[in-house]
């Protein structure tokens, strides 16, 4: 074993891990916005909107992320829209996680007692304000553990975006493994970095969860 190869590559791998992390965070942020929109569609009065929401969820949960990614990357240029790899990557992660996040939100919405919204309605709140001030904040805190979990899954899935040329952790490891002929040292380093990031996220999630529980 040659540790030197790993040590030489380490700064580059760490900076690529930074890219992995922020792309995943951007992905889950987009996923939350989309997830909330999809949930609104799924609880809307219009049957067409409800069906559109259901189709969205089953498509993005049913098609492998890699295939979604390739679709975005190759299809959009095909119809004349030029997408930088980074945008395709974040878009794909966000679209896919939106489907899962909307299911998480749906579960946490169902966990909020009906009286929470009724108390606000009885005071004369508009439905938009009921959503924004009463339901969404409670959904977010109920969802926190599941969202952290989703972020961890997304961070691991983000290794797939290496195929569209984003120099995140997996792709950078590839390059170093090929250039140094030390794949084992390089990939074990990459694995440890992924593991460290996810353990840190899980710990952060546990702290958040305890905080929220304490606030009542």
């Amino acid at each position: 074993m040659k540790l030197q190869a790993a040590l030489d590559a380490l700064p580059y791998l760490l900076s690529a891990a930074g890219t992995t992390l922020w792309i995943s965070l951007a992905g889950i942020a987009l996923g939350q916005v989309l997830g909330a929109c999809v949930l609104l569609a799924r609880t809307a009065r219009s049957p067409a909107l409800r069906r559109a929401g259901a189709v969205y969820v089953s498509f993005f949960r049913g098609v492998p992320l890699l295939v979604q990614l390739l679709l975005i990357y190759y299809f959009l240029p095909y119809i004349g829209i030029d997408v930088p790899p980074l945008v395709a990557a974040i878009g794909a992660l966000g679209l896919a996680s939106g489907a899962y996040v909307s299911e998480i939100f749906r579960g946490s919405l169902a966990a909020i007692p009906r009286g929470q919204a009724e108390a606000a309605q009885a005071l004369g709140f508009s439905s938009a304000t009921v959503w924004r001030r009463i339901l969404l904040p409670q959904m977010l805190r109920i969802s926190t553990p599941a969202l952290v979990n989703e972020l961890i899954l997304l961070l691991k899935a983000s290794s797939l975006i290496s195929v569209v040329g984003v120099t995140e952790l997996t792709r950078t490891s590839h390059s170093f493994a090929a250039a140094t002929y030390r794949p084992f040292e390089i990939y074990i380093t990459a694995a440890l970095i992924y593991l460290a990031m996810n353990l840190a996220l899980a710990a952060l999630g546990a702290v958040l969860e305890r905080r929220l529980a304490a606030a009542g």
Binding site: P113, G115, Q116, E118, A119, A120, Q121, A122, L123, G124, F125, S126, S127, I134, P137, Q138, R141, A215, G216
Partner: peptide, 24 residues
């Protein structure tokens, strides 16, 4: 219309069996 109903509700307070305070 929603806004007219919301306006009428301002004048009517309601207290529930399970309080329904907002926990956050």
């Amino acid at each position: 219309p929603h806004h007219a109903l919301q306006k009428m509700r301002r004048a009517i307070g309601m207290v529930f069996q399970h309080f329904n305070l907002w926990p956050h």
